[in-house]
């Protein structure tokens, strides 16, 4: 004898759990890449401020170098969006 009520409930639970897990994955993807970007930008940003302080013409180039690690967090964001939608 099969208990259909219990089976349906388990399936719903699994589905809900999958949604939850993908949300956690999306969060981790954005969060960890954010930390990675921050660490990468720390050194570049410090050097960029130093260079700009000495020579103002460096500002544009220094800003460009500083934001290059932003790509990491964008990859994370893309992965998160793919997971959620």
């Amino acid at each position: 004898m099969v208990d259909f009520g219990t089976a349906e409930l388990t399936l719903e639970m699994i589905q809900a759990s999958q949604v939850g897990m993908s949300a956690v994955g999306a969060g981790l993807a954005v969060g960890l890449t954010g930390v990675g970007t921050g660490l990468a930008e720390m050194g570049i940003g410090a050097a960029a401020v130093g260079a700009t302080a000495e020579n103002r013409d460096m500002f544009g180039l220094a800003l460009l170098f500083t934001v290059i690690p932003e790509t990491i967090v964008i990859f994370g964001l893309v992965v998160a969006l793919l997971l959620l939608f």
Binding site: M42, G43, G45, A46, A47, V49, G50, A51
Partner: peptide, 8 residues
């Protein structure tokens, strides 16, 4: 970061 700033 401070070391990088000063050395740059």
């Amino acid at each position: 970061a401070q070391y990088i700033y000063a050395c740059t």
